[in-house]
C-alpha cells in the first residue's frame, strides 16, 4: 500500500549527530560537499573517507541502512565508471587492448575516484542531514540560516511555512490518492493496463478529484490558520528556539580544520601530490 511509505529517511535517535543544531549540520554539509569536490588526490580521498567513517560511527546509524541508501544509485555508478574506463586515453601503453577498446591505467584510476567521490558524497550528506534531522528541524534550520535575506525582502518565513505545510500534508495526500483510486477502480477505472495514452487518460478521474479536494483543503486550512491569528511572521515567536551549544562549536572547529586540510592538499604543488597519488595507487592496486 502506498500509505506505508515512510516520509523522508529520518531515523529518530539520540546520537551526537542527532543532537547537533540543524544549522550546524546544514553548514557542515555545505563544507563537506565543497571538500568532496576539492579532493583530487588519494591522500585527500583517504581523509574524506576517514571523515565520513567518523560521521557514520558518531551517528549510530547501522551500516546496513547506509548500504541500502547507496543501492538505488548503484547502476548509475557502474555506468559512469564504465564510461570513464573506456573513454579515458592515457599516456603509456594500454593495459588491455582489444580491437578499438583500449583500457589505460588512468581510466581505471579516474573511474575509481569518481565512484568513490559519489559514494562518499551520498553517505556524508545523508548521515549529516536526512538520516539524523527531522524534517521540521531541518525547516527551522533553513529558515534561521536564510533569515538575513529577509532584510533584502526575500520572504524566508513564507518559504519555511510552505515547506512545513507541504511536509504535513504529504501523508494526507498519499492517503487521499489511494482512496480516490479505490473509488474509481470500484467504478471500473483501470490504471494499470492499456497504451500510454489510455493510461494517461485514465488518470483524469484521479487527478481532478485530487485537485478539487486539495484546493478545498487549502481553503479550509487558510481559514483555520487565520482563526489561530496567523499573520505571517509579524510579531511571531517560536516554541522551539534554535540555539548553538558548545558541542556545535566543537564540530564547527572540526569542519574548519577539515576544509583547511582539503584546501592544503589541493594547493600542494601538483608534482608532489601527483607522485604521492601514483605511489599510493600503485601500492594499493598493483603491488598486492
Amino acid at each position: 500500500m502506498i500509505s506505508d511509505i515512510t516520509l523522508g529517511q529520518f531515523f529518530p535517535g539520540n546520537s551526537p549527530i542527532h543532537k547537533l543544531d540543524p544549522r550546524t549540520k546544514l553548514l557542515l554539509t555545505v563544507a563537506f560537499i565543497v571538500a568532496v569536490f576539492l579532493a583530487n588526490s588519494p591522500l585527500a580521498f583517504f581523509s574524506l573517507f576517514l571523515a565520513v567513517l567518523t560521521l557514520v560511527l558518531a551517528s549510530q546509524i547501522s551500516f546496513k541502512v547506509i548500504l541500502k541508501g547507496i543501492k538505488p544509485i548503484i547502476y548509475v555508478l557502474i555506468f559512469t565508471a564504465l564510461i570513464n574506463i573506456f573513454m579515458t586515453r592515457g599516456e603509456g601503453e594500454p593495459l588491455i587492448s582489444f580491437y578499438i577498446i583500449k583500457i589505460y591505467k588512468e581510466g581505471i584510476i579516474r573511474a575509481f575516484f569518481m565512484a568513490f567521490r559519489v559514494i562518499l558524497l551520498i553517505i556524508g550528506t545523508s548521515v549529516l542531514l536526512t538520516y539524523t534531522t527531522s524534517p521540521i528541524s531541518l525547516t527551522d534550520g533553513i529558515e534561521s540560516l536564510l533569515s538575513p535575506l529577509k532584510k533584502i525582502g526575500v520572504p524566508v518565513h513564507v518559504f519555511a511555512m510552505m515547506m512545513t505545510i507541504a511536509l504535513r500534508f504529504i501523508p494526507t495526500l498519499i492517503e487521499e490518492t489511494e482512496k480516490i483510486m479505490n473509488a474509481q477502480k470500484s467504478r471500473g477505472a483501470d490504471f494499470s493496463s492499456g497504451s500510454l495514452i489510455k493510461r494517461a487518460k485514465a488518470l483524469i478521474p484521479l487527478l481532478i478529484p485530487l485537485f478539487v479536494s486539495s484546493f478545498k483543503r487549502a481553503d479550509e486550512l487558510a481559514i483555520a490558520m487565520e482563526c489561530r491569528c496567523y499573520r505571517g511572521d509579524k510579531n511571531r515567536t517560536k516554541l522551539v528556539k534554535l540555539s548553538y551549544k558548545p558541542k556545535d562549536f566543537l564540530w564547527f572547529a572540526f569542519g574548519i580544520l577539515f576544509i583547511s586540510l582539503m584546501i592544503a592538499l589541493r594547493i600542494i604543488p601538483q608534482h608532489i601530490s601527483g607522485s604521492i597519488s601514483e605511489e599510493l595507487f600503485n601500492f594499493l592496486f598493483f603491488k598486492i
Binding site: T164, K238, L239
Partner: peptide, 15 residues
C-alpha cells in the same frame, strides 16, 4: 499545520 503535535498546539500562541 505542523508535523508534530506540540508544535501545532504552539501555532496560535506563536502567532
Amino acid at each position: 499545520v505542523a508535523t508534530v503535535v506540540e508544535e501545532d498546539v504552539a501555532f496560535g500562541p506563536e502567532n
